[in-house]
Write a protein that binds this DNA or RNA. Structure first.
Length: 534
RNA sequence: GUCUCCAUCGUCUAGUGGUUAGGACACCAGGUUUUCAUCCUGGUAACAUGGGUUCGACUCCCGUUGGAGAUGCCA
């Protein structure tokens, strides 16, 4: 039944980032989940660029955003995307509508220009999900007067230590309000005075109040991820929607644009949960249908803190620069805070789309594990077409002065030998010994391999044995074995010292194949260099 | 302070009243391979805590602790 309803509606989800030059992991994850959801539901995935921060929203920043989305394969429908700056008049019109209907008022704080404030409606029952939840009493600090006006009820609560604690909320939070003093005497009763309070003609200030008595109203919505969420109106304040300089703030712009784009499902970060209650009210006051909401848990860094725009290495571009594949990153990120419910982990784009559901998204924050991402990336690399692998490797080799203009045939062989060992493309910097004239010796490794003075002598013998042979892997192995046999040592004992002397490092592909690839000339040169140095 | 939410191995997670609490990454040991990587085998490692409810709680309820978010004329 539910599925039928979904299909009939044709869902529309969106990603609405503000382009600030860099896209971080937490942000793009929201895009991924929206995309996965939309594709899974055969709906539309829209992009809206919230570029109202003129300082940071440069054309380059927007290009970066689009670039990253394309790289990850997050294709969006209805191009070009909606630019929020183009909607200014729309936002202002909506604000005027609210003003006209009495759902917003103008106010100035400290005598400046007037800002526009969205008023949480006194007749809040017209908002879906609002219900009375009983009469309650809240203690207030007698030293601070209670002020009741159309802007709300201001008072000081009582802290654990008996000190005044700042409190107060929108008027709508206090249905059937009575203000009582310490003896329980009624200082103020809103009954019969609603009109005057609401139209601003009456503002009451009540010193010596001890208690607020009112009918609490709570707004509840069903979150597609987190389940039922609710919040009492007496913990909400009216919200600024237009700054005193005349520019609309996020809340109204976001809601109006969602109406404009006919968004049916809003999937966004956890940090917006509290905004949702107010946004639901705005949708309703603007005469629009309230969309469905789903809030994603945050992704946190190794310190357990959410990634912020300042978090150095959490930018999507950095992962690309380090040689992570888009499929691997997408796969990994989809698995942060979500799982298909079975034991699959390596999943293709289509697998993910097919398996995705918001109901299976977790409620708790997830920590990024670079090692697991790296492992997954290695799996994707291992499966790459050799040509595609070579192409990528070439790109990453080119950043090194020893990695430019490489011989194609030689490079192909190196790639074939090394593909299974590479976890991320930036690690091709370890291939230097294949291409550079000079090797860098790993002193520590050498010290380990050449503990025995006799080993160096063996290298001398190896060198002359190499000189005489036709230089292929098989002959190389035979030559090495003849030396080990002659010296009466284990057949593989010399392999690592040879590797150290020729490549400078302690790990790599099979040494016979490696030497064959390097060629006789280079191998002998490297051995000479080694012998001259050590 | 107040409000909202969250809590299974180090990390990502499976688990919806009865399981030897499963898998993956990482780590350790062993095997295969000329080192490494791959591959195979095995191992260490978790239900934050205290109360309930129940014949029986990781699972349901309440408290505590811990964490996150919100409380902006930021988004």
């Amino acid at each position: 039944m539910i599925i039928l309803e979904y299909q009939a509606m044709s869902i529309r989800a969106r990603f609405a980032p503000s382009p600030t030059g860099q896209v971080h992991i937490g942000n793009i994850r929201a895009a991924i989940f929206n995309w996965l959801f939309a594709r899974n539901q055969k709906g539309n995935f829209l992009l809206r660029i919230e570029d109202t921060d003129l300082e940071r929203s440069t054309p380059e920043a927007i290009a970066t955003l689009l670039d990253v989305m394309e790289w990850l394969g997050l294709d969006f429908d209805e191009k070009p995307p909606l630019y929020q700056t183009s909607q200014l008049q729309n936002h202002l019109d909506a604000v005027q509508k609210l003003l006209d209907k009495g759902d917003a008022y103008k106010d100035s704080k400290g005598g400046g220009e007037e800002a526009v404030i969205f008023k949480i409606p006194w007749d809040a029952e017209r908002i879906p999900g609002v219900a009375d939840t009983g009469t309650i009493q809240v203690p207030v600090h007698p030293e601070v007067p209670v002020v009741v006006s159309f802007k709300g009820v201001d008072y000081a609560g009582v802290s654990a230590k008996g000190k005044p604690a700042p409190g107060g909320a929108c008027l709508a939070g206090f249905k059937n309000l009575k203000v009582l003093d310490a003896e329980g005497k009624v200082l103020f009763d809103i009954a019969g005075k609603e009109e005057q309070i609401l139209d601003g003609s009456l503002v009451v200030e009540l010193p010596g109040a001890a208690k607020l008595d009112f009918t609490r109203r709570t707004i509840t919505y069903h979150d597609l991820v987190k389940g039922d969420m609710s919040k009492p109106l007496d913990s909400m304040r009216d919200v600024v929607i237009v700054r005193s300089d005349g520019t609309p703030v996020f809340h109204i712009a976001n809601v109006v644009d969602d109406i404009t784009q006919k968004i049916t499902h809003i999937i966004r970060g956890d940090d917006h949960v509290e905004n949702t209650f107010r946004h639901i009210m705005m949708f309703t006051c603007l005469g629009a249908k309230v969309p469905k909401y789903g809030h994603l848990p945050m992704i946190v860094n190794a310190a357990g803190k959410p990634y912020s725009k300042r978090d150095g290495d959490a930018f999507v571009g950095d992962f690309r620069d380090k040689g992570f594949l888009p499929e691997a990153l997408l796969n990994y990120l989809a698995l942060l805070g979500w799982s298909p419910g079975d034991e699959r982990e390596k999943m293709s784009r289509d697998d993910l789309i097919e398996a995705f559901s918001l109901e299976r998204v977790l409620h708790a924050a997830a920590q990024m594990d670079i090692q697991k991402l790296t492992n997954l990336n290695g799996q994707y690399i291992a499966e790459m077409e050799p040509n595609a692998f070579k192409e990528m490797a070439t790109k990453f080799l080119q950043v090194h002065d020893w990695g430019k203009d490489l011989d194609d045939e030689y490079l192909t062989k190196v790639c074939n030998l090394m593909q299974s060992r590479l976890k991320k493309f930036a690690d091709v910097d370890q291939w230097k010994y294949f291409f550079a004239d000079q090797v860098e010796f790993d002193e520590k490794n050498l010290a380990k391999q050449f503990k025995e003075p006799a080993t160096r002598d063996a290298i001398v013998k190896i060198r002359s044995a190499f000189e005489a042979i036709d230089f292929n892997a098989e002959a190389i192995e035979t030559a090495i074995h003849s030396v080990t046999d002659e010296l009466g040592i284990g057949q593989g004992k010399l392999n690592q010292p040879i590797r150290g002397a020729v490549t400078g490092v302690g790990i790599g592909a099979g040494i016979y194949e490696t030497l064959e690839l390097l060629g006789k000339e280079t191998t002998l040169e490297r051995l000479d260099e080694f012998l001259a140095k050590y």
